[in-house]
Design a protein around this nucleic acid. Structure first.
Lengths: 154, 154
DNA sequence: CAGTTTGTTCAGTATTGACTGAACGTAATA
DNA sequence: TATTACGTTCAGTCAATACTGAACAAACTG
């Protein structure tokens, strides 16, 4: 059993790294990690203070996360600051977003395959295989999004 | 029905962009696109010539793709050059790699959750939810990898 | 053996994009 | 109205990394 503060810090940094590996800014992941771990709303200013980053970064990253449906901005009566908290079940939204991207890629490739002449059956088949790969990937992720609503008792 | 050469060029560039969006070098994707489209083996030197990139880039990117199981290096009798061609079904390998990464992430997070004290049940639950998200993602992708062997007649 | 071809390595360059912080507009407050 | 608090924007900086190309070692050729 280790120090909670250290585990908390490690979690926040881990989510930051994971998020970065997925092509999003690291600060986005750190905001996410903080809000998930503490499970409460943070004010705009507190986010910047807690994560030691500029207010400009909080502005752009929090907005992006809110647009993606990961977090939500809430107002508090008698407080002019914006507050952010984690969404009820953000993971479903995550998965649907990833699946949509894969589906889009599949369609882009299939569209090119459709432009090839009749005589190039082999080539067309190979290109379609690649499109099929992304289509199947999207389907698999959608299957995951159905499961993610269930309880994590594994 | 457009010019095949243009469709070919577009396909190669598209795969390059897609691959880049997934965190790999764009040249890796262009090698992949070329080998998929033409469906034949290319020599090391021809790859550099066809894609207009340095031999150093071919060296590192082709090696990475071969290590990941996407392409294979083959030798031709009486030719000192290395030849590369697309693997029989590279997509299965792709998907398994992606799934393995997600599984690893799930375990990393779950390991942190296990370090939290008894009293922090709510926090532990939230962290486990996040781990569960990655676990379910990995499972969904594995399901996809089973489908990818079947024919793409959609 | 000298000369050529081939792939690798690595230092340097270029590029991409995240991040900062100051300037700004807006809205609340006194 | 003046002042303060707040979030956004954007030009500039910084860091990470893809890419180049020359130097190199190894293996082949004559």
């Amino acid at each position: 059993m280790q120090d909670v503060a250290e585990t908390r810090a490690r979690f926040i940094e881990l989510i930051g790294m994971v998020t970065q590996a997925e092509g999003l800014p690291r600060i986005s992941g750190r905001i996410l990690g903080l809000l998930i771990f503490d499970g409460r709303a943070y004010s705009f200013g507190d986010l910047a203070r807690e994560l030691q980053v500029s207010r400009g970064s909080i502005s752009s990253n929090a907005r992006m996360l809110a647009e993606r449906g990961a977090i939500e901005r809430i107002a508090r009566p008698g407080d002019r600051q914006d507050y952010y908290q984690i969404r009820e079940n953000p993971y479903d939204t995550f998965l649907k977003g990833i699946a949509a991207r894969a589906e889009k890629t599949a369609q882009d490739i299939a569209q090119l395959a459709g432009q090839l002449p009749e005589g190039m059956g082999e080539t067309t088949a190979r290109v379609r295989d690649y499109a099929f790969f992304y289509k199947v990937l999207a389907e698999g992720i959608l299957i995951a999004s159905e499961k993610v609503g269930s309880k994590p008792d594994n």
